[in-house]
């Protein structure tokens, strides 16, 4: 366990270059004890690379990161003893039984023999795998595998947990259950850094860091982000011919960040009162029948679309 006065995760100006490609570009990051920090961004934005550097698996090209108070570049072994890491790809042994994977990682983390049975039972209960001890891991359903992977990453009761897309390819119910586990651990004082590209999951985090093309583009609590990022008003439009409507709306002056959400469209406008009639007219002029237009509260996905769209425009 770390002292209460050390910040569990602290990164400053972290850079990772692969040849000419800058995967992570001067990232500053901080996570406090018991905080669940979400790392949000599209594939290839540098989320995994950042996490791997924080776990001491990749050497930073520049900058510094302290995890549990230890420099990840200089004392990676000290860091590894204090963290749990779950990689993006399932990386337990598929040809071992559930219990054998648990025992193996308990051995890796040097869990004392006196605590072994207790910890094993704890992980089995937590992951809901009691009774499945002798199942060959490879035959478990995806959600169960992820819970087992989480269990194996926390056998040594680390104070900091790094989870790289822990719920990718997992059904919604399993995902919800997984997040309950994460929060239970955070309540016990574990600091959790988790990457995801599921926007609904981001709502579970205490704090979010939006990363795009290797840079942090926004950070804050989900509520803060929504207020901060959404300059203007978000409208929901229900209509037919969604594809055509999308094209039409993109041509309307003032309208931006037009995006498809289910069978409706989201669009950001400077002012709802004046914009709604204009949008309605533009759509009907092209033969699109509008059934509903109304202002709605922004979701994180809107925030994300809005931010990344603005950044992409600026860069191209």
């Amino acid at each position: 366990m770390t002292d209460h006065d050390t910040i569990p995760v602290l990164a400053h100006g972290l850079v990772k270059r692969f040849g000419d490609f800058v995967a992570v570009d001067r990232i500053n990051l901080e996570a406090r004890t018991g905080e669940v920090v979400g790392f949000l961004g599209p594939n290839g934005s540098g989320k995994s690379t950042t996490i791997r550097m924080l776990c001491g698996l990749l050497r930073p090209s520049a900058g510094q990161a302290l995890v549990a108070g230890f420099d990840v570049a200089r004392e990676p072994e000290q860091v590894r003893r204090r963290i749990g890491y779950m990689s993006q790809k399932f990386s337990l042994y598929n040809d071992l039984r559930v219990i054998e994977n648990i025992r193996f990682f308990a051995g890796m983390y040097d869990v004392p023999a006196s605590l072994l049975n207790e910890r094993t039972q704890w992980v089995l209960d937590m992951a809901g795998l009691a009774g499945r001890e002798s199942t060959i891991t490879g035959t478990l359903p995806g959600g169960w595998k992820q819970r087992l992977a989480l269990g194996c990453a926390v056998l040594h009761r680390p104070s900091i947990l790094f989870l790289d897309e822990p719920t990718s390819g997992v059904d919604p119910i399993s995902r919800r259950r997984f997040w309950e586990l994460i929060h239970a651990m955070a309540d016990e004082g574990v600091t959790v850094l988790v990457t995801t590209h599921y926007m609904d999951e981001a709502e579970y985090c205490n704090r979010l860091v939006l990363i795009f093309q290797g840079r942090i583009v926004a950070a804050g609590s989900p509520t803060e982000l929504k207020q901060q990022a959404m300059t203007g008003e978000l409208l929901l439009i229900e209509c037919d011919q969604l594809g055509l409507a999308l094209d039409v709306l993109q041509q309307v002056p003032g309208a931006r960040d037009v995006a498809l959400f289910g069978n409706a469209l989201h669009v950001v406008v400077p002012d709802g009162q004046t914009s709604i009639p204009r949008l309605r007219d533009a759509l009907s002029a092209h033969g699109v029948a509008v059934s509903r237009i109304e202002p709605i509260r922004a979701s994180l996905e809107d925030v994300f679309v809005s931010l990344t769209a603005r950044l992409s425009d600026r860069r191209t």
Binding site: R81, I83, S91, L92
Partner: peptide, 11 residues
């Protein structure tokens, strides 16, 4: 098999 990533994250 990708198991190395988990393995090297241990001490």
């Amino acid at each position: 098999r990708g198991t190395m990533e988990q393995l090297v994250s241990t001490p």
